[in-house]
Design a protein around this nucleic acid. Structure first.
Lengths: 119, 119
DNA sequence: CTTTCATATGAGCAAATGTTCATGTGTTTA
DNA sequence: TAAACACATGAACATTTGCTCATATGAAAG
């Protein structure tokens, strides 16, 4: 038995065809880091809450802060990061800065995550 | 102009209908934290690489380590975390532990991320 | 049973992360 | 122009995170 095993860890120099094939199929490093950085945005509960709120309606900073019960400063810091990642945009409207989702991918990414979490 | 503005930050007690409506539409806290924890798994480049590899083929730990040029210990630590999140499973096969994706959502989540990153 | 190979794991450490606090910037209103 | 409001930002701090190094476990081969 086990004659079709091609994973040969004892031989570090010449690995199996499978390993070489997989090596060639990996995305380049830039793409990989960009991708990880993107998902990092969804990996914090404060940012997650902000995006959930903005999925329902655009909203100014202080309303987001009070709705979520998080300090205005904390919200502002996180909004800065989300804007850098091009996930959120904003416009000035009188005294307020109104924030909104900048990318429809946000919805589909969160939905994919939800369908995993909700079994 | 601006007569339809219903964001009233000066009045902290009674906020607009929109804010109240959004508050009711937010998922419960447990779901939110689970979701953030899920995306946290995709937010590290090492774990991302591991999942990319396993999207192509199941593979034992030492092959993953050598293929990615990352220490066996580091890989093992990350695999532990990924298994806790039910994203990866493994089975023993002789001396080796063969790892594989435990959930098809992994593919769809990564694909959604990729379509954002690749414009 | 002893050795070897594959993997797991704990301690320690450096770097990244998220918050608070204080203060700065910019816009509106008095 | 001065005061008030909305938001941004930097420093400081505590926590989390991901790695290395050393060592433990566990199956398999001799």
């Amino acid at each position: 038995m086990d004659e079709n095993l091609d994973l040969l860890c004892e031989d570090p120099g010449s690995h199996s065809d499978v390993v070489e094939k997989v090596r060639g199929s990996l995305p380049d490093d830039d793409t990989l880091y960009e991708l990880a950085d993107l998902f990092k945005m969804f990996g914090d509960s404060t940012r997650m809450k902000i995006m959930f709120v903005l999925m329902e309606s655009e909203m100014c900073v202080c309303d987001i802060a009070e709705l979520l019960g998080i300090s205005q400063s904390a919200i502002s810091h996180q909004l800065r990061i989300l804007k850098q990642s091009k996930l959120i945009s904003s416009r000035r409207e009188g005294k307020n800065i109104v924030c909104f989702l900048a990318d429809d991918h946000v919805r589909s990414i969160i939905d994919q995550g939800l369908s995993h979490v909700l079994e």
